[in-house]
Nucleic acid binder design. Sequence first.
DNA 1: ACCTGAACACCGTTCAAGT
DNA 2: ACCTGAACACCGTTCAAGT
Lengths: 227, 227
Amino acid sequence: MNKKTAPRARRDDMLSRERIIDAAIDLLDREGERGLTFQALSAQLATGPGAIYGHIANKADLLTAACDAIVARAVASPSDDATPQAAIRALALALFDAMDDHPWAGATLIQAGGQMPVVRILERVGQQISALGVPQAAHWAGASAVVNYILGVSGQNAANAQLARSQKADRDTFLAEVAIAWSRLDPAQYPFTRSVAGQLRGHDDREDFLAGVDLLLAGLVSQAQIS
Amino acid sequence: MNKKTAPRARRDDMLSRERIIDAAIDLLDREGERGLTFQALSAQLATGPGAIYGHIANKADLLTAACDAIVARAVASPSDDATPQAAIRALALALFDAMDDHPWAGATLIQAGGQMPVVRILERVGQQISALGVPQAAHWAGASAVVNYILGVSGQNAANAQLARSQKADRDTFLAEVAIAWSRLDPAQYPFTRSVAGQLRGHDDREDFLAGVDLLLAGLVSQAQIS
DNA sequence: ACCTGAACACCGTTCAAGT
DNA sequence: ACCTGAACACCGTTCAAGT
């Protein structure tokens, strides 16, 4: 009876947790982390600031949920890779690219503790670690090492993007400035940093990131062979 | 002439960047990241909020400087270790313990981009990577992988400590709660996370952290041997 | 030259009043 | 039951006035 009218009767502009999170992601992508305020968010949703608290607990909850949506999308693609190593590399790259598109998500992810977005990553990584033949007792240490590495890079990338933004420079000129600052350090105290300052300029972030993943995988494989 | 009176004439309570940073560290250690406000800080220094801006640029600058002081202390101990591996392990552990004592520093460190606190770590790690015999071209990738891993763990630990604090639980009961939440996840979607939930409880954070460092070192050594 | 502290612009969150 | 939006408590930062 009422089924006939239900689809059209349901108001499209009704507030929901999902709509709030989508609007928050929009705002974060456009204006950065500083741009997400309850004022701006409620304005975009054509409501009052108080209405949002009916669907989310607080701002930290909102940020975690927005970050989780990004991670869920990045992790959603099916992994039909030939080897566990390839699957982990593909997963890591998908996350890297997602964080590159949404720099605020990297900063949020690392503050999310053992919550959903991190668990999603842990699960995907862990399944492949298990497939690698790593002994059961080493599952946790291996998976958490890979996850921590991914989180560290994400956070660092987010920080770089945010610093570049605050200086109104693009990423390349920002990195060039860092390279110059490093090459001016005291040679006696900072020989290594000075020596890699050149490599910093023009390097490929994605490739460096993958190199780190490969180091961990190489370590895991040798560990699996020993035991 | 004036040298005679100078030592006593110099007012001990004069404001300085160093005194501000020390007071900020005190406040952060006692009250957490939320406790550092210019109001509380200036009160502790017996001055007005505006006076602080004569010595530091803004709050981000203050946080980075405070974090740098912690890192500088942790890194200061001489490394007379037998092998580069042992030196990196000792350095990583010193940083881990420092972040454990000052959880706010982990969260700050990861937002510090290519600035001093991170450079200090990069330099120490890099010198040992170089001593390991890693080929020059791989210096940057190897050192940044280790640094990123350390930063990731630091940030994650800081987030856990902060979450535990906000729930007014100590670290152990907080981790126990996480373990329970994980063991309640959907078995079809989260088999791995469920399987390691048990290992989470009662595990040794320091040991897990070192295991990740060892994985990276094992990968680096095998890389050095191949080339 | 440096400190003082009131004032400003803003933000997350609450809650009585509406519908 | 849910939205509305004024009000509250608070915070980083500035700046004219002091010393």
